[in-house]
Design a protein around this nucleic acid. Sequence first.
DNA 1: AAAATCATCTGACTAAAGTCAGGTAATGCA
DNA 2: TGCATTACCTGACTTTAGTCAGATGATTTT
Lengths: 294, 294
Amino acid sequence: MQIDDIQQVRRFNRLVTQRAGALEESYLSRGRPLGEARLLFEIGVAGGCDVALLRTRLGLDSGYLSRLLRSLERQRLVELRKAEGDGRARSVVLTEKGREEFEAYEALSDEVAEDLLSLLDEPRRKRLIAAMGEIERLLRGAALEISVEDPASADARWCLEQYFAELSARFENGFDPGKGGGPPSSEMRPPNGWLLVARIDREPVGCGALMRLDEVAGEIKRVWTAPAARGLGVAARLMGRLEALARDAGFSIVRLDTNRTLSEARAMYRKLGYVEIPRYNDNPYAHHWFEKRL
Amino acid sequence: MQIDDIQQVRRFNRLVTQRAGALEESYLSRGRPLGEARLLFEIGVAGGCDVALLRTRLGLDSGYLSRLLRSLERQRLVELRKAEGDGRARSVVLTEKGREEFEAYEALSDEVAEDLLSLLDEPRRKRLIAAMGEIERLLRGAALEISVEDPASADARWCLEQYFAELSARFENGFDPGKGGGPPSSEMRPPNGWLLVARIDREPVGCGALMRLDEVAGEIKRVWTAPAARGLGVAARLMGRLEALARDAGFSIVRLDTNRTLSEARAMYRKLGYVEIPRYNDNPYAHHWFEKRL
DNA sequence: AAAATCATCTGACTAAAGTCAGGTAATGCA
DNA sequence: TGCATTACCTGACTTTAGTCAGATGATTTT
């Protein structure tokens, strides 16, 4: 690692935190301490949620959070009620007045961003946005964690549900997991199957599975990235890990199939070194088959 | 301005401030409140300075700052003494122990930056650094302020001194302002001369002058950018403003000369539409002459 | 059904950060 | 010379942000 790089990061951090301080200051303009403003904002973004979620998201002490909520309640900005399902927990929602306040904070955030952009002419603005997007993708992608997961875990099931829902939305004739979903999820457990879940900041953002086809070949299935995490290279990282798993399991070949509507996926497989091969299974939803020698 | 752009800036701000929190947290690891740590750091960066400068840089109340300084003094990290020149003012310097602490904070900053970089592989790291550099240049450049200044003002004199010092360091045979410096600074006042000073965050970072040659032609001189602000497009912005001044003054041509050692300057003049012409003056330090029709 | 665990609340604290109104000595200006 | 201004200091105060040790009632485990 180069010293120049470190210096660049440090200069950048200094500059950006300085500018970002403008946001905190603008938040204070509504005459409410920052802690309360942040809390109100977080409740608004979540659109009402359980107190426990706020506690972990903002990293607050439970006593402290309780008091902050009480204060917002006294200001008639939020309402607290018992959470459904668990009588111990409580959930918060914004009142009408709270929603107005939240929107005022939204407007302030927009304003700060707009002020920044207005300093630049159109081509420079484009470059700034592009560079910000690049940094965002790189940093979010860097925070990606991939782990082998039991297919029955809550996050795994969530990912798979999303995946199937997306297939049935995108495939020309819909999608029925029973017909083309391949092996049931319960088989995606070692030693003949592996399910990976990718997370960013604890939140699941993607999945992928490897199944044993025979002694020498594995099959990659159910590679999916959450819409919010696309463009970060999540799928490519999942593929890499699946191939590593395949190698560790002693496979020398991995195969996969895909539907013709998923053209981005096909482009990615090619880029990763997969070559198209003849049909090797009877999946009615597949139009292309690929393999890669490890 | 597009809504997408604003959202990108907001997402970026959120992400970056979140990561920057890591730095603040690491600063706390030395068992000193953040306020004191920041102050110590600022004194160290400045290498000792007047109290008033710290007050404006950190935006602190004078009473509060006074107490913070007292606390650092009690810890034997800094020493306060009367500022030279003004008996009311005080100046601060780090003690030996203070310097050690400062360096520990420096090391922490480096570490945080390194941790970030270590999350990425080499090509991604390169992209991150490039994007950070781009953002830094754009934002710093956006904060550039250019104004017509009296050549006797402190900032103007500082810029001109720096400019002459640099010429004498770079020219093959040194530089004597008396021989090639052109008209004395006192002539750079309307209606026959204009001196521009460029500033970023109040700090002067460059200068440039326009002088009347005759009824229809102006001459651009003393265009200089402080080393710390190079690469931000300061000189190009100064040139643009000087040309605008020339147009307003009724000139239809601007000319300028330059030394052969200043190749970046020559490249910039060409890029801005200047064309090389024969010698039009007797400046012994000039090797190239340019002009541009407005 | 008892015991353990959990989510939240309450009260009693503390440290940090900051504000404000004078006060003192040095400086600048008429 | 004298009066306003400036740079900093001091004391008295407030707000913000947070910690911690129980208390309470719901839920889960045994």
